[in-house]
Amino acid sequence: MKQGFNFMKNLYVIFAFILLFLCTTEALAEGLKFSPQRINFDAKDRVFTLTVLNDSDEKKAYRLSFETRYLKPEGGTTLVSDESEFSAVPYLRLSPRRIILGANQRQKVRLQYTGSNLVDGDYLAHLKFTEVNLPSDLQSDEESVGMKFEVKQVVNVAIPLRLSVGDVQSNVKIISAEKSNYAQDGYEFWDITFKRSGNGNGSGFLYGRFKKDGSDEQGALIIQRVPVNIYRNTDKFTLKAPLVAGAKLGKGTLMLTLYDGEGINRPVIDTLVLNIPE
């Protein structure tokens, strides 16, 4: 029973970090869910459809817009100009730009690629949903002509968007790892640094095994399902990866593996083996 509890607690910490990575603004729009959660848009398809769900018990309205965010080498993102080298914003159109959703109502949002003759590679954007006040005279879910929406408060969420044009190639290497000074809820963290190359984003899932010196066993899985997403704008990125609940590394060997997908049976992108002193 305790093992099951620890597993769920591990998942909570990992998914909390996923949300911190995905949501680039100060607050989430309560009750708003998306499918898919990340937008991987192949330019040759020209159109991408996102499904939005209002998972709350009240009617809500949102204003939709694009913005460009670059990944910082130490983690997190920073807002940059839409004229930046790797911005996808100038080549995208969005419909509708304002939506009203009743409780548990879904709506499809259509993204269109309008560019041409772009250099091959990945381009970056975030699709932002800003909650706004419903007009007091609103009688239906239809938006009236000329209706004005006022921002309710700074409550929004931004979904990462990758626009892939032509032949996209990328490679990711794990170049170093060390115990982090950061800790949360008793969890130990490690700072894992990656190097990205090529004209595309780099991504994968990180797992880690620790084997005590003198042990004949395969080693315990002490880092599980940590998503790695490195934007094209940076060639180096450091991720804080949590160890499983209660795990502490003593003298032994730490093997870090980046997989091309979720699960240890997926193809291996890169591996780093470290000898941990006592």
Rank of each mutant, 00 (worst) to 15 (best):
K108Y: 11
E262H: 10
Q184W: 10
R106F: 15
F5R: 05
G200C: 04
G246Q: 03
K179A: 11
N181G: 15
E83D: 08
N10W: 03
D57W: 05
D216I: 00
E278A: 08
L274Q: 03
S84F: 01
Q153W: 12
L71P: 00
I276G: 06
N156C: 12
N104C: 08
N233I: 01
Y231P: 00
F41Y: 06
F210Y: 10
D120N: 12
T25D: 13
L163Y: 00
M8I: 15
E131I: 05
A103V: 11
Q3M: 10
K44E: 14
K179H: 12
T24D: 07
G263F: 10
M255R: 15
G208K: 03
G115M: 13
Y123G: 04
V109L: 09
E30P: 07
N10A: 08
E67R: 03
G250A: 08
T78E: 15
I14R: 08
A43M: 11
D270M: 01
P73E: 06
P73Y: 05
T78P: 09
N117Q: 10
S116D: 09
F41V: 05
E58T: 12
G219R: 03
P242F: 08
G75M: 04
G214C: 11
E74T: 06
L11F: 11
P227S: 07
M8D: 07
V132H: 07
S180P: 00
P96G: 08
N40Q: 11
N199D: 10
L20F: 09
Y113F: 15
A61P: 06
I99W: 05
D185Y: 15
E85K: 08
I14L: 12
L101A: 10
L94F: 11
R97G: 09
D120W: 05
K211S: 12
L134H: 02
V109W: 05
T114V: 15
F189T: 05
R69P: 00
A27L: 14
L254C: 11
D141K: 12
G200W: 07
F205A: 08
P277M: 14
G214E: 12
L79H: 06
T25N: 14
L79V: 03
K240Y: 08
E150T: 11
F189Y: 06
G102K: 07
E74L: 05
D270L: 02
V165K: 02
R266E: 13
G219I: 07
I159R: 00
D216R: 14
S140A: 09
R232K: 06
E278S: 11
D42V: 01
Y62F: 04
A27W: 13
F7V: 00
S144R: 13
L22Q: 06
K212I: 08
N133S: 14
R93C: 11
L32Y: 13
T49R: 06
S136E: 14
Y123L: 04
L161D: 06
T25S: 15
I192N: 00
I192R: 00
D216L: 13
V109T: 07
Y62I: 03
L254H: 10
Y91I: 06
I223E: 04
I222E: 01
M147P: 00
R106V: 07
S136F: 13
A241C: 02
F129K: 01
P160E: 02
A220R: 04
T25A: 13
G208V: 01
N6Y: 13
P135S: 02
Y113C: 09
R98Q: 10
L53H: 09
D235I: 10
S170G: 12
K173M: 11
